[in-house]
Simulated scan of single mutants.
Amino acid sequence: MGRAEKVVLAYSGGVDTSVCIPYLKEEWGVKEVITLAADLGQGDELEPIRQKALKCGAVESLVEDATASFVKDYAFPAIQANTLYENRYPLSTALARPLIAKLLVEAAEKYGADAVAHGCTGKGNDQVRFDVGIMALNPELKVLAPAREWGMSREEAITYGEKFGIEFPVKKSSPYSIDRNLLGRSIEAGPLEDPMTEPPEEIYLMTEAIANTPDEPEYVTIGFEAGIPVSINGNNLDPVALIAQLNQTVGKHGVGRLDMIENRVVGIKSREIYEAPALLVLIDAHRDLESLTLTADITQYKRGIEQTYGELVYRGLWYSPLKAALDAFIQKTQERVTGEVRLKLFKGNATIVGRRSPNSIYTPDLATYGADDQFDHKAAEGFIYIWGLPTRVWSQKTR
């Protein structure tokens, strides 16, 4: 890997990305480091982070508010695809990575940098997502990953940074590794590395403990247009406001927690805790609305597409040709997925209790068992004979 003159570094303000700044300059001979912090609705005050990058030696410190794009261009397509990795994780953290990769590439092109960098280690998924995303968007850019090569422990990294005047707050260090954005939080490491250890209540911020949730259920109706969530209880909301409001509403009822053993891209199993209240509920409601508006063959075929889609996103292939092709299929299926889904929130559960759509293909006079039944029961006998004929012939020949 060749070295670089000017680098755009993905910057969070933490130990690793802060130490990356002097490390890139002193050890790898980079002349100029430009940092980029992405605001994805995580709730942090980013101006101190911007200033910290300058104190650490960055020649320029960029802050990009990409929350609206994050929801509209990344979360909403994932909801349309009912995206759940390993049938559980809604990719709240993974969906941020292709967007950050895009911001890095755009900044590199704007400032004439010949490389981008990140602070990922060699064990995680994010290194794959960043590296592959960047090379898909601009294969000419170098990708530098100092933390993958420097071989320093966290304590050694802090000592290295202090040599260059970087200050690290003196406080009791949390044993957890936490990532947050508008869509959710991921928590790992520390005591959670024992799969048998129950997560302590202190790690959760977006969801209430069941003991503290309301003693009365709350009903919420989510409106969709062409597979995109647009309203809550009849009130149209912009994408960011919709996610934020639903996070609060759903989270206070204890809905949205996941505790799972996950298969990382690099082959390691990892114990992960997630909070993603709005995203999980939206996927569940969207899938239910599809059951009302799509034909059986599309619904059933789409399930396999959804699994592949989730694997592509998790494994850093957001910008791949296969992902683009699947997007085209999914967008076609969403044309009629318009309507409302009603949920009952109570004690950690979000139960779907109703749905309606102007495009519904549920036909009451065919489905009913009452006097209004229009189904021709006599037709069933002939259908069953034809349907079962291959089985009958097989059975006769194998007796």
Rank of each mutant, 00 (worst) to 15 (best):
N247W: 09
H377I: 11
D288M: 13
T351A: 13
D373Y: 05
A285H: 05
L294Y: 00
L343M: 12
S320Q: 07
L279H: 06
A350T: 07
Q248C: 02
Y314Q: 13
P277W: 04
R303V: 04
L246M: 09
S320R: 05
R271E: 03
E290A: 08
A380Q: 09
Q307W: 06
I273V: 15
G370F: 00
V337D: 00
V341P: 04
G304Y: 09
L322I: 12
I352L: 11
I298A: 07
R315T: 10
S320G: 08
T363D: 10
L312M: 12
Q307K: 15
L317K: 14
G251D: 10
F329V: 09
A325P: 00
T338N: 01
H253G: 06
Y362A: 14
T368C: 11
S270T: 00
F375R: 14
P277A: 01
G304D: 09
G348L: 07
V313A: 13
N359P: 02
G256V: 06
K347N: 08
E340F: 08
Y369R: 12
R356H: 10
A276I: 03
D376A: 06
L282Y: 10
G348R: 07
A371T: 12
L312S: 04
N349A: 06
K302N: 04
E311H: 11
L258H: 06
K252G: 00
E306H: 11
F346V: 00
L246R: 04
Y309M: 02
F329S: 03
Y301M: 14
L322H: 08
A278R: 10
Q334C: 11
E262Q: 09
F329A: 05
Q248V: 08
R342V: 01
G310Y: 11
Y369Q: 08
Q300V: 09
L326M: 13
M260Y: 03
F329G: 00
A371L: 11
K378H: 10
S360Q: 08
L326P: 01
Q248P: 02
I273D: 05
G339Q: 04
G316D: 10
K302C: 05
K269S: 05
I268K: 14
N359M: 06
Y301R: 14
I261G: 10
E275A: 08
T249L: 15
L345T: 09
N359A: 09
I330E: 02
Q300H: 12
E306D: 15
V353H: 03
L366K: 14
Q334W: 00
A380R: 10
E272Q: 12
R257E: 06
M260W: 00
Y362V: 08
L280H: 01
W318K: 04
V341R: 08
L366F: 15
R355W: 03
T249R: 15
A350W: 03
V265W: 03
N359T: 01
V337C: 03
R355M: 14
E311A: 10
S360R: 03
S291Y: 02
L289N: 13
R271Q: 07
A278F: 05
K378M: 07
D372N: 14
R355I: 03
D259S: 12
T299S: 12
K302S: 15
E275S: 09
G251R: 02
Y314F: 14
G254W: 09
Y309A: 01
A276V: 05
K378V: 02
D284M: 06
G370R: 02
F346Y: 15
Y274E: 15
I283N: 13
A276S: 15
E290G: 12
I330R: 01
D284S: 14
L366G: 04
L246W: 06
L280N: 06
L345K: 08
A296D: 12
